[in-house]
Amino acid sequence: MVENRPFQTFLTHLILILGVAVVVFPVYVAFIASTQAPGTFLRGVIPMTPGAHMVENYSAMLGTGLRRAGAPPIAGQMFNSLVMALGITIGKIAISLLSAFAIVYFRFPFRIFFFWVIFMTLMLPVEVRIFPTYQVIVDLGMLNSYAGLTIPLIASATATFLFRQFFMTIPEELMEAARVDGAGPMKFFKDIMLPLSITNIAALFVIMFIYGWNQYLWPLLITTDTDYFTVVMGIQRMANAAETDPQWQLVMAAVVLAALPPVLVILFMQRLFVKGLTETEK
């Protein structure tokens, strides 16, 4: 504060409270809707106060799903999403650490070329090469598998850049000392680089987990078997079905469940999240 003006402080709080209300509003409505009795959404307007059917709706979604819409139980889909999110996150971090280490700590032919190949991934999001990528997955027999859900998404230029930037800031002396002491490259990587990178790894973990959990187009392309559906892509079927058969209390329960894990990650790891976000964006 440059000067003390009580009215302005009041106004600031007022605007922010209204802002937060607007931001929270959709999720509040979804939660309220998910606690209503069946039949609430046939007519009238969405209620604004909680109903009494929360436990019933959530356990119905987790355990049996929305049979009439061809949607399997959410519990299985959430497990698939978790496998996918963790697979993508761990994969991305592992291969990016290794390639950044190679690019910073070795001089070898084609180094710059490799760097550019990795850089190209930034310019080729799935959305622009949908069909040919799908063909590759078909040819490799990776449709409807966890490998297909994760491996094609673990190449990451951003993570490689982040680790490269970070490795460049590590003092030269550390590596020289390690070499004098007779440590080979992999021992140096494991005992010195990894422990030093822990904060960066954690920050990246938060960002990549959210990225992985929220994948939509990719699972839509490569899963046809309901056993491999992820929860985020599964929502769409239910929402479409609710247009004709308004079981919104169940659809909204699924929406809340699908959004909860990544939101909790942000709320509990806010500092790491902000660090990860501001640093991965180059």
Binding site: S99, F101, V117, T121, L124, Q135, V136, I154, A155
Partner: peptide, 17 residues
Amino acid sequence: LVAPQLVITLIFFIWPA
């Protein structure tokens, strides 16, 4: 060390593009 990243990039990014 760069092989895993490179192979995935070539198969799933560069080749489809």
